[in-house]
């Protein structure tokens, strides 16, 4: 699971959970996979994602230092920023671990890079 994917996941499917975002990450295995840098693509992703959630996710997996706390002005032209964002969004993958609902504490296992977001019948 890339952190960009993590940025889209929520646990608001649980009964009683309203926002369920961002999910906390408890990681036991992390991998870094090289992905071709496409500045245009990253620049177009920035407004779609929740930056503070990305920053928190990066911190959760021990990579909090690799991106700034806020989106820099005129980031479209800032290759250094886009490269950092690219690395954190696209190249860091959670392989084993758990995603934690911020409201209920419910944990969703991540195994072989695949989050299991299924709920039990009584949670829906």
């Amino acid at each position: 699971m890339k952190l960009l994917t993590h940025n889209m996941l929520t646990s608001n499917i649980i009964k009683g959970v309203t926002k369920g975002f961002p999910l906390g990450i408890q990681v036991s295995k992390l991998e870094e996979k090289s992905v071709d840098f496409n500045p245009d693509f990253v620049a177009r992703m920035i407004p779609k994602i929740d930056w503070s959630a990305l920053k928190q996710a990066a911190s959760d997996v021990g990579k909090g230092d690799e991106i700034p706390a806020d989106i820099v002005p005129q980031y479209e032209q800032n290759e250094d920023f886009l490269k950092k964002a690219h690395h954190v969004l696209m190249e860091i993958e959670v392989i084993e671990g758990e995603l934690v609902c911020p409201e209920s504490g419910r944990k969703f296992p991540v195994s072989n890079g695949i989050p299991n977001m299924l709920l039990n019948e009584d949670e829906v």
């Binding site: 699971m1 890339k2 960009l4 994917t5 889209m8 996941l9 929520t10 646990s11 608001n12 499917i13 369920g20 975002f21 779609k48 072989n112 890079g113 695949i114 989050p115 299991n116 977001m117 299924l118 709920l119 829906v124």
Partner: peptide, 27 residues
């Protein structure tokens, strides 16, 4: 099936269509 998707290097999660764990108004 999700394992197969993962092995092909695509982003995937296991989930139910009746409880999609993705952020609203996002896609």
């Amino acid at each position: 099936l999700a394992q197969i998707v993962q092995s092909r290097n695509y982003q995937v999660y296991v989930g139910d269509v009746l409880a999609i764990p993705l952020r609203e108004n996002m896609f």
